[in-house]
Amino acid sequence: MAYQEKIKFRLFGHLLPKTPPHAVQRKSVNLTDDLYTYQLNLSRFQEEFPALQSYNCTLLIDKEDFCHSANMKALFILSIKSHPASFSQRAALRKTWATEKEISKYLMKPLFLIATSPNQKQMNLVADEDKEFKDILLWDFMESHHNLSLKERCFLRWLFHNCQKAEFIFKGDDDGFVNPDALVKHVRETANASDIIHGAVQAHAIVMRTEKYRVSKTLYPHQYYPRFLSGGGFIFPGKHIPALYAASMRLPVFPLDDVYFGFLCLAASLTFRNDQKFYVWGMEDKICLYKEALFVHGISMDKLLQVWQDFQEKKC
């Protein structure tokens, strides 16, 4: 099914309509950090990735009252990028760290960020899944590697319109371990935690011209990217939602989601904090390290369940 075609998935037995387009003033920009200047030419992005620039963020499953239910508690959203087919991953996460829980003054609430699949059976199961757990945002664009950038852009739009009261948002992949207690401890003990973006910082990474992360010289002629956080998992404060959303309405949408978020942060003049407890390339298999870790990327679901059991039973 082509990306531009109207998605005809029937969720809960109803065809959900398209929402009207929203005003976007996307344009070419030049962004500068302490080392380089980066040119993002809108016409080139429109030529190579037109759908990324024009998509209107249509939700098939929404959560308009998600943040209101927190009442007077400080909300810490655990947002997780997931594919419709990843039922076992989501099930494992719900049995471990992706559960609603109050820690100190924070209410931790999970929210899965999902796009569509051409497999109607998968989509029906996603609808049933949300009916039971009520923890899914579903957009009508198709899941793909490049469309992960749409999850960045559309989630920022959703936050801006529905959840600016959130104090912190963790955003990560569904193949990871998260320690909610460590996240809360981290933001409580880090100076100026609500002013900075937290994660594993990639400092001026070299642009790849081949294979999965390929970006053409026509689209992006520069040799380096600005600083960005590994997309596996990071934290950003809710106070920065308006600035990030404004940048997402103005900048061309880059086809690599973590690099795209880096450009948004640069445009919004936001500061990164690198922390080695975001293990984005795996970690030594020791339970005491898991107890201190904020995030561990690339962990199987069987391993996650075992770690979580050990996590509850063993002391360090």
Rank of each mutant, 00 (worst) to 15 (best):
F76T: 00
S144P: 11
F49K: 03
L148P: 00
F234D: 02
E102K: 10
F272Y: 10
S104E: 14
H297G: 05
Q53P: 03
L75M: 08
L59S: 02
L42W: 06
P84G: 08
A247H: 02
E167I: 04
H83W: 14
E143A: 08
C316G: 14
K286S: 15
L219W: 07
Y245N: 11
L31E: 09
D128E: 15
R209W: 06
D173A: 07
R209T: 13
E5F: 10
M142G: 04
L137D: 00
S194H: 14
P180K: 03
W308F: 15
R153D: 02
P84S: 15
T96F: 07
S88L: 11
Q39N: 15
T96A: 08
L150Q: 00
Y38Q: 05
Y55A: 04
D285V: 12
F234I: 11
F155K: 00
I241W: 01
G233Q: 02
Q39D: 14
F168C: 04
N41A: 09
V253S: 03
S117C: 07
L75S: 01
G298N: 05
F49I: 12
G262S: 12
L289K: 10
A92Y: 03
C57E: 00
M208H: 14
S86G: 06
P17Q: 13
Q223A: 14
T32D: 09
V215K: 05
R250G: 08
Q122H: 14
F263K: 05
C154V: 03
I169T: 05
M283L: 15
N119P: 08
L304A: 04
A92I: 04
K277L: 11
M123I: 08
A98R: 02
M249K: 08
F263D: 01
K105F: 09
K81V: 09
Q4A: 09
D175G: 01
E292D: 15
H240I: 10
G238M: 04
L148F: 12
E132Q: 12
L289Q: 08
T99S: 12
M1A: 09
N147A: 04
I299R: 07
S54D: 13
D174N: 12
A293H: 05
S86V: 01
A166R: 01
I206K: 10
G262M: 06
E284V: 14
Y106M: 09
F278T: 01
M1P: 06
L256M: 05
A51K: 02
A191Y: 09
L107N: 00
D302F: 14
F12V: 08
R273N: 13
S269T: 09
L93K: 01
Y3T: 00
H146K: 10
K185R: 13
K6Q: 08
L266W: 02
